[in-house]
Amino acid sequence: MITEISPIKLLLKLSLLEFRKNFLTLRMGVLLPILILFILGSSWGFSDENANLPAEVNANNPFEVLFLTSLFILFSSTLGIVLVGFDGISKKRISGLLAIEFCQPISKRILGLSQLFGLWLTVTIPTIILSLFAVVLIFKQMNMWPSLAELILFIFATSMLLFWYSSIQLLVSCLARDMGSAVTLGVGTWLLFTMIWLLVTALLATVFGVDVTNTSNEKFISFSSKVDLFSPNGLYQLLLESQLENLSRKLPAWMLVLATISWSLIPSTFFVWIFTKLRA
């Protein structure tokens, strides 16, 4: 006798299965040392009072160290999402496995969401665990803990960042028709937000008549912070900056909340919609 399973329970089971499958791959074998080096190394280094940091970088308390560590998370963990997820859908589609899954008596929406949560958990779990270890390292160096609110904000923002990246990666993976385009689209979107965003900001500033020759002027800073709302990396930084004092890049809280909700809903909803329309 088969009893009906609730969609939430089914989603959870499939997400965990996907997470386990992703986690036990060679890609994670490559990624884990990078995460360990970047997250633990940066938190250890930035919290060392003898470390020589550039003049404008201050790390006087644990949260400021975590903020600086977030720059390394932006580079390594988001790259991890790309590494694991760039072919998350396209590989199944090309190999024909998607056809087998689509034949099964399950809603495509649940199947798509399980892919998304599976990918998200694969990189988020080690990132968060390493971040907690980083907090311990910071305590060893500075003899100070971040406040609970700061820690929760850091974990929340980091988890959200990786969720946004997971949605984007799977979305572009749905659009990819072969392995080549999957790599190009996956790495391309990562490059756009991680490397090229400053150029995009400068271009937009020029278009809107904002002086880009002096990036420390107030008008440019205000403009760039608004443009950053349209980038997951930018929004992540803005969320963390909201806890930092003496920073000129302050945006109203409603803007941050709206951007966070939008980034959490729009790419993931769009991904699930595209996934349900996919032809296996």
């Binding site: 088969i2 009893t3 009906e4 399973i5 089914l10 089971k13 499939l14 299965l17 499958k21 036990l24 791959t25 060679l26 090309i94 190999s95 024909g96 496995l97 056809a99 087998i100 899954e101 034949c103 099964q104 008596p105 399950i106 199947l111 296996a280």
Partner: peptide, 25 residues
């Protein structure tokens, strides 16, 4: 389906398990 290209480090056991979970069996 025709010519499914099963590849990767997963096992037949795991693949069947996934379908069984999907079908709630």
């Amino acid at each position: 389906p025709e010519n499914i290209n099963w590849y990767g480090t997963s096992t037949p056991y795991q693949e069947i398990k996934k379908i069984l979970i999907i079908r709630n069996m």
